[in-house]
Structure formats: C-alpha cells, structure tokens
C-alpha cells in the first residue's frame, strides 16, 4: 500500500537531510504510528505521501502509484484516495460541520444529492449526529477534530494520514479521537498516524516506527512509546 525505498529528503537551503535513506513498507489495512522527537522528519513523511514535497532521492509508492514520477496535473486525483487530518483541524470557519464535510465532496465534483446522502452518515459515524449545523467555533476541540476526520473519511479513502491529530486535545478527548481512528482502520482503511502521545501508543499496541534525525531507529510490530 505504501512503500518508501531509500528515500532522502533535503529541503532547499537545509544543511542536512530531513529524511536520510529511509525505507519502509506499510501493508493495506495496517495501523502505523510514527514517533520521534521534534524535527526528526515525521511530518516530512506525511508530506511526501501527499506529494506536497517530492523526495530528493529514492522512490515513494502509494496505492501502487509511483508518486515521484506522478505528473503534476494528476496529483489532485491521486489525493482523492488519501484522507488527511492535522493537529490544527483546518476547518473552514464560515461553514457548518455539515458544510465543511460537504465542501470536500463538492469540490471534487460530487453532486449535492450525494452530499445529502453521505454527509449525515459520516457525521453520525464520528459521533456528531445532531451537531451538523454548528459552526467550528460552536464546537469543542475534540468535536472539531471529529469534523476533520469526517471530512477526511467521507470520500472513503484507502489511506488516512494523521499528523498529530490529538496534539491540541486533552488526554480523554485524545483517546476518543484515537478510538475513532481505530474504528476507521477496522473498515479496512490503512491509517498512518504521527504522534507524541505516549499514552495512546502504549494503549493501542500497534506497529510503531521511531525516527530520529531522519532515520528509522526502531520498527516494532506491537510496539510501545519506549
């Protein structure tokens, strides 16, 4: 599902590579934590998978597509198979929960009728039934992140990427979001999650990949934060 082969990424103007000869494979349906100190290169991996940046060296394969050779006009379509959640939610403040999720559908060409059918369903799934018409500022942080998860998942992507999705949330809310991602993983979606939250990692006992200064230093099948 996801293959990094000897991937090196050096940003322009950077003195040392942010990722240094990283190779890792992730199977369909897996749940993987990326952990490591700040600046170790975790977000860079997410950006590579989304083709927000391209590798300086090596090969990135996502959904059997070699991202490195993907023509730029094909990137939008490629991204439709990937859902994405971030620490800062990235919701549109002037749109309700429903509209935020529907927006993601509309801008990729789905009709309003499709949105009317699918959006309530997915909002129900993330536990926001009855709060469809709240604006982001009328929702708690955890609820906002649920909207973001609903938006990422509404298109039934094959892969869900989450970059510190609980970074702004208190421990209890974090666990709830974590359960939600787990539930999504159980539908067969591959989930890649970057986190600093040792609590969550230790509870879940899933595959843990630890990065330090751009290199993989640990890859454990049922790992702990360590």
């Amino acid at each position: 599902m996801i293959q990094l082969e000897n991937v090196t990424k050096t940003y322009p103007k950077a003195s040392r590579p942010s990722l240094d000869n990283v190779s890792v494979g992730i199977e369909k349906g897996e749940f993987v934590f990326f952990i490591g100190p700040s600046g170790s290169g975790k977000s860079t991996i997410i950006k590579l998978l989304l083709h927000e940046v391209s590798p300086s060296n090596g090969k990135v394969v996502v959904n059997a597509k070699d991202v490195t050779t993907l023509r730029s006009w094909k990137i939008p379509h490629f991204r439709r198979s990937i859902g994405c959640v971030f620490q800062d939610f990235r919701l549109l403040p002037n749109r309700t929960a429903y509209e935020n999720v529907a927006f993601a559908l509309e801008v990729i060409g789905k009709t309003k009728a499709v949105a009317r059918r699918v959006v309530p369903e997915v909002l129900e799934l993330v536990g926001l039934g009855g709060k469809e018409h709240r604006y982001p500022h009328e929702l708690s942080g955890g609820e906002q992140q649920r909207v973001a998860v609903a938006r990422a998942f509404v298109n039934r992507p094959l892969i869900l990427l989450a970059d510190e999705p609980t970074g702004n949330l208190d421990p209890d809310t974090s666990i709830e979001i974590m359960r939600l991602l787990d539930r999504i993983n159980r539908t067969g979606t591959t989930v890649v999650m970057v986190t600093h939250d040792s609590n969550i990692v230790n509870q879940m006992r899933r595959r843990v990949i630890e990065i330090e200064s751009g290199r993989i230093v640990r890859d454990q099948a049922r790992g702990v934060y360590g």
Binding site: H77, A104, I108
Partner: peptide, 14 residues
C-alpha cells in the same frame, strides 16, 4: 487561502 488549502488537500482539480 483556507478554502484553497482544503481544496488542495481533498484533491480538487487545479
């Protein structure tokens, strides 16, 4: 910019 960022994220065509 927020709308555009979200549109890019979810794969709206250029």
């Amino acid at each position: 910019r927020r709308e555009v960022a979200v549109m890019k994220l979810v794969g709206a065509s250029n």
